[in-house]
Write a protein that binds this DNA or RNA. Sequence first.
DNA 1: TAAAGATCGTTCGGGTCCGAACTATCTGAG
DNA 2: CTCAGATAGTTCGGACCCGAACGATCTTTA
Lengths: 163, 163
Amino acid sequence: MPGQHTLDETESQVATRLAGMNLDFEAMAVTANLFRAANAARNHMERTVLAKSNLTWTAFVVLWVAWIWESAETREIASEAGVSKATLSGVLTTLEGRGFVERKRGEKDGRLVTVELTASGKRLMKKLFPEFNKSERHVVRGLTSAEQPVAADILRRITQATN
Amino acid sequence: MPGQHTLDETESQVATRLAGMNLDFEAMAVTANLFRAANAARNHMERTVLAKSNLTWTAFVVLWVAWIWESAETREIASEAGVSKATLSGVLTTLEGRGFVERKRGEKDGRLVTVELTASGKRLMKKLFPEFNKSERHVVRGLTSAEQPVAADILRRITQATN
DNA sequence: TAAAGATCGTTCGGGTCCGAACTATCTGAG
DNA sequence: CTCAGATAGTTCGGACCCGAACGATCTTTA
């Protein structure tokens, strides 16, 4: 299988290639595997659950946030979804065009825009989210149930340290 | 601070909003925090280390893979960087235009393309990578040195489970 | 109560990002 | 030897992605 390296091969190549450079290899291993894992999980979910509804990852997360909070302000959605307000603006336009969300100008504060799911958007999430959750279960199936809260906690601390 | 929720608030809102839906909340917490952490770390690095050299995240990863392996085939880079070959093609064109990499047609197999860093690309990585590693150290500073290998191992298992 | 400043969402330009369709090349069965 | 099939990288269309610049709106200050 030419041109294919296992995780172990990659990490040992890294170690020899960068030997004597005074680097923190532990930190490197954590972040490298963090991105690999997030990417693998995201790609998997996009190709299985999300593709059927023709939704991108970000579009789904935006729907999810608005669904969970009943109605959400855009900067809140952007922050939870981890995208810039510029990106969110475009995604909302797409979702609005497909009839899944509605934008509403703030009445008290004319600068604000709140986002609500339409009936169609709610139906979609009600059907989609259980399937999505099944995928989440698949992603963590390599961890024991004791390890899962540990993993969540570690990841929370990484997020906090980065802000 | 209107429109801002803490992680705890979000998770408890999720719990009440989705109560009685027979979902795996442990798995949900792991994946949600996985994406949050990866996103936070990526944004942090893009804005600090990478912005100075006007590099995107993916462009940096591509350079990194080619640098570590001395010279790499495109499908290998795409796989390690976690992007499709279509995306890689565009990124390589950008990097080639900026003089950081060179494409070389395979001599034995005319379909293959191998990628090598130019002298300029090597200089860039030699300067940039130690700074990048300092950022990686920052990202994991909330974890003890005993926890870091545990974290890397857990993330590796998530990656494996997803394939 | 104006003018200065802060904050919000949108727009713009350029760079990813992907699946699908495409061209070029190699491989195998007959 | 040939040509169907597999494989590699590119192109294309459409969606995301960001920082910067922008207009609209609220808030603060004098």
